[in-house]
Computed example of a mutant assay.
Amino acid sequence: MPAPFNPFKHAIAKGDLQLGCWLGLADPYVAEISAGAGFDWLLIDGEHAPNDLRSITAQLQVIAARDAHAVVRPPIGETWLIKQLLDAGAQTLLIPMVESAEQARKLVAAVTYPPHGVRGVGSALARASDFSAIGDYLTTARDEICLLAQVENLKGMAELDEILAVDGLDGVFIGPSDLAADMGYIGKAGQAEVKEAVLDAIQRIVASGKAAGILTLDEEMQQKCRALGATFIATEIDVTLFARNMRAAAAKATEKLKRR
């Protein structure tokens, strides 16, 4: 029996649009609700949310019971951490702050078993192999692992074409917030120069034959990225979605009941 089919990997390879939501509340209950909401993919954030291996694993478990696909972003692209996340059952990884082709090649090696890579062989202990129930896991796992590089600063943008030439990389995700900061527009991802750089990068990614992705709450930017051929677009963040609706609910109640 081979490794589980990765619908997200095959969808973006075909150019089928996958809409996603960022999960930063770091809670399986929220992840379960989100997984049934209708998004194609959910990003479990280990970089800027209070997640660790156990909380990420718990969210992978509840998402697996629904139709949404789980993407995991570790805090850093270290081989040892990638190994743990893959063994925990993550099949799609988004690695932050990728700045060079050399770094991208090391990431490809980290998700690949020897002799072609350096991923440690420990699937007998792993949720990824259904605890040894998937007999062919070791020989088929790499076919279903989706590796995405996040390019989000000027150094990475300068090396983008070289990164795109790396075999084994499924897609490149552009991070507007960090890019804006590096360009001197911290907190202003909507600045015209930043948008121009992002759209140029999306165009180059698509032209290379790899999948292009982005997280943006700007509906106009979502449309522009899609028009250029972006195939995985996150349109919401659970933290901000919850916060703004809670604040709106409190303001509405206050207006109706306290300010008569």
Rank of each mutant, 00 (worst) to 15 (best):
V62C: 04
T240W: 11
S34P: 00
I174W: 00
G122S: 08
P28K: 14
V71S: 02
I163C: 07
S55Q: 02
D161V: 13
E255D: 01
V166E: 00
Q61C: 03
A110Q: 02
V198F: 13
L199V: 07
D27L: 01
D40G: 02
R204M: 10
G190R: 05
S129A: 11
R259C: 01
I233W: 10
N6T: 09
L147Y: 12
K106L: 09
A11T: 11
D52K: 11
P96N: 06
R247M: 11
Q59L: 10
V108K: 06
I202G: 00
P74E: 05
I63N: 01
D67I: 07
A189R: 12
G184R: 01
R260D: 01
V72D: 05
S177F: 15
F8T: 09
I237R: 14
M97F: 09
T216D: 05
A149S: 05
Y29T: 15
K258I: 04
L107D: 01
R259H: 07
D87R: 04
C225V: 13
S208M: 13
L86W: 02
S100R: 12
H48A: 05
Q222V: 15
L86R: 03
V206A: 08
S123L: 13
H116T: 15
V121C: 09
A211E: 07
L228Q: 02
A201F: 03
F8G: 05
R54T: 13
T57M: 09
C146G: 10
H48Q: 08
A26P: 06
S123T: 15
T112S: 04
A109D: 14
A248H: 13
D45S: 11
V172C: 08
E193I: 10
G229K: 12
K258G: 00
H69P: 00
